[in-house]
Design a binder for these strands. Structure first.
Ligand SMILES: [Zn+2]
Ligand SMILES: [Zn+2]
Ligand SMILES: [Zn+2]
Ligand SMILES: [Zn+2]
Lengths: 150, 150
DNA sequence: TCTATTAATTAGAATGATTATCACCTAAAA
DNA sequence: TTTTAGGTGATAATCATTCTAATTAATAGA
């Protein structure tokens, strides 16, 4: 935890941004909820528990900043809210998601499944890939069992 | 054009929905702008040229309906607007997108690049894939040339 | 230390996209 | 004809996000 905060602090400093208490509180919330996919509002409410004086706008600005620095990724699952997802330790590609259309569960895939596909896109379309967003919609393991049973 | 409208009409009827004049006008706009990625507002303005009495709410309702029937796909490129994308003739998978981070151009890929990846997800994660969203962010051919030149 | 400058923050207003509501209007069924 | 179930258009309401003005904190130079 502390070392990851330290690392983020350095990333901010390298672009001459500061890790203010509000920003640190926000980052801590993100670290403590790495598996969840929190909306700005979610983050705001959680940060508020520790730092009640923080404003919603600050959370938005912090998330935007972290997003620019590629520390978090902004994703969108189709409900009208942006969600913010911390990049995994050491990962330089954005992980993929499996969204269950039955129960809404979101599973993460950290393996990069797109290496070959990206090569193909670069060679066949001449498009220089920098990042990707891949989400599968379908039925999770759990819901498949339920369906079979009923 | 006419045959595709006819087909969509049948799809609506099969769920006991009607192809009202407003819905038909909306579908025509989508067909005439297949390559673009129109927002609801865009569609509204275009439809209004032919059917000036149409209301914005009706456009939203129509797009939502077409979305449920998998005739269009609702996508989100990160600006705060949903965009609506007609499925290609006969395609039963949603096509992919290449978004240029330099110029904002959006290119489409109709080939399904994910067949192998989906197989892997089904076998390794036990997740039954129904649909996917894949977007690459990067630098388009055109912008690469500019970068080299300057 | 004092002061000027700049960066960050807050609360709240404003904006903009989307959704809900409601009165009215079909078209077909009974 | 009366009924019924969708549709529609205008407008209000909602909700996420961004902007603004005023305030505070941090920084650097005198
Ligand atoms: Zn499920
Ligand atoms: Zn995730
Ligand atoms: Zn470009
Ligand atoms: Zn498209």
């Amino acid at each position: 935890m502390e070392q990851r905060i330290e690392k983020i602090k350095k990333q901010l400093h390298s672009q001459s941004y500061k890790l203010t208490p509000q920003r640190e509180a926000t980052v801590r919330v993100l670290l403590e909820h790495e598996e969840d996919h929190l909306s700005a509002e979610d983050v705001y409410l959680l940060v508020k528990e520790k730092a009640p004086e923080i404003g919603l706008a600050t959370v938005y600005r912090t998330l935007e900043l972290l997003s620019e620095l590629k520390i978090v990724d902004k994703i969108n699952f189709g409900d009208g809210v942006s969600r913010y997802d911390l990049r995994k330790e050491g990962a330089e590609h954005f992980h993929h998601h499996l969204v269950c259309v039955e129960c809404g569960a979101v599973e993460e895939i950290e393996e990069d499944l797109l290496i070959d596909v990206e090569k193909q896109v670069e060679s066949d379309w001449g498009f220089q890939v920098k990042d990707h967003r891949l989400t599968f919609h379908g039925i999770c393991k759990k819901c498949q069992v339920v369906t079979v049973k009923s």
